[in-house]
C-alpha cells in the first residue's frame, strides 16, 4: 500500500515537473479546446433557445444558464486553490504554487460574472440591482479575497515566497465557502435556495435542469482549458532562463 502511494506520488511529481507538464499539455490542449467548445456551445444553445419558458419569470430566468454555473465555478475554483495551497505548504511541489497562481484570475473572473449576472437578473425579478443580502455580500467578499490573492502575489518579487503567501491566504480564506453555501439557510434572504444539490432532487423540471447540468459541465471544461493555458504561460515566464525553455518551447515556436 505504502509502495503504491509512493509510486502515485512520484508519478504526480514527475508529471508536474515544468518541462514534462509543458510537453504533455501541448498534446492535450487541442482535444481540450475541441471538447470545451462542443459542450459549452451545446449547453448554452439548449438553455438559451430550447428550454421551456418559466411560467412566472418568463424568459428572463434563462440567465440561470450563465449565473449558476459561474457561481458554482467561482466557489469550486477557490476550493481547488485551497488544495493547491495545502500541497504547496506541505510538500513544496513547485507546480502546485503555479497552479494556484494561474487559477486565481479565472476564479475572480467567474465570481465577478456571477455577481454581475445576478445583479442583471435581480433588476427585473427583485426590482433592484443590488441588496446587502447574505448570499450577495458573502459572494462579494469571496471576490475581494480573490483580488487580495492576485494583489499579494504580484507584490512579492520572490515567486516561491509569493506562492507560499497566497497558499496561506487561500487556506484561511476557504472559510468563506461554507458561509456562502449556507447563507440562504442561515439568514433571511431574497436569494432563492440552491437550484440543485448532490443529495436531493432538483427543484426544476428535467427539461430545465438538464441543459443546466450540461452548462455546468461546459463551464468546468472551460475552467480546465483556461487553467491549462494560464499555467503554460506561467511556467514559461518563470522558467524562461532555463535551457529546456529555449530548446523545447522557443524552438517549437520558430
Amino acid at each position: 500500500m505504502n509502495k503504491m502511494w509512493n509510486y502515485i506520488k512520484d508519478w504526480f511529481i514527475e508529471m508536474g515537473s515544468p518541462p514534462l507538464f509543458f510537453k504533455w499539455s501541448s498534446k492535450v490542449l487541442p482535444w481540450l479546446i475541441f471538447t470545451t467548445i462542443i459542450i459549452f456551445a451545446l449547453g448554452l444553445t439548449w438553455g438559451l433557445f430550447y428550454s421551456p419558458t418559466d411560467y412566472k419569470q418568463g424568459d428572463v430566468y434563462r440567465i440561470i444558464y450563465i449565473h449558476v454555473p459561474s457561481a458554482i465555478l467561482g466557489q469550486s475554483i477557490f476550493m481547488f486553490m485551497a488544495v493547491c495551497g495545502f500541497i504547496t505548504m506541505v510538500w513544496r511541489v513547485k507546480i502546485s504554487g503555479m497552479l494556484l497562481k494561474a487559477a486565481a484570475p479565472i476564479g475572480a473572473s467567474f465570481t465577478l460574472l456571477a455577481l454581475l449576472t445576478g445583479s442583471i437578473w435581480g433588476k427585473p425579478t427583485w426590482g433592484t440591482w443590488w441588496v446587502w443580502d447574505a448570499r450577495l455580500t458573502s459572494t462579494l467578499i469571496l471576490f475581494f479575497i480573490y483580488a487580495a490573492i492576485i494583489g499579494l502575489h504580484s507584490s512579492i518579487d520572490d515567486k516561491s515566497k509569493a506562492d507560499r503567501a497566497i497558499s496561506i491566504l487561500s487556506i484561511v480564506g476557504i472559510a468563506i465557502i461554507p458561509i456562502i453555501k449556507k447563507s440562504v439557510d442561515w439568514w433571511q434572504t431574497l436569494h432563492q435556495p440552491s437550484t440543485f444539490s448532490l443529495t436531493s432532487a432538483p427543484s426544476m423540471t428535467p427539461d430545465m435542469y438538464q441543459p443546466l447540468l450540461v452548462c455546468v459541465l461546459g463551464f468546468y471544461l472551460m475552467f480546465a482549458l483556461l487553467l491549462t493555458m494560464n499555467l503554460r504561460a506561467e511556467v514559461i515566464v518563470r522558467e524562461k532562463n532555463k535551457s529546456w525553455v529555449s530548446k523545447q518551447y522557443l524552438s517549437e515556436d520558430k
Partner: peptide
C-alpha cells in the same frame, strides 16, 4: 424574449467578454 432580451443577452455578452479576456491574457504573456 418578450422584453427580457436586453437582460439575458447582456449577461451572455459579459460571459463572452470575460472568457475572451481570460484567453487573451496568457497569449499576451
Amino acid at each position: 424574449m418578450d422584453g427580457n432580451g436586453l437582460y439575458v443577452w447582456s449577461c451572455f455578452l459579459l460571459l463572452i467578454l470575460i472568457i475572451g479576456i481570460n484567453i487573451y491574457m496568457p497569449i499576451r504573456k
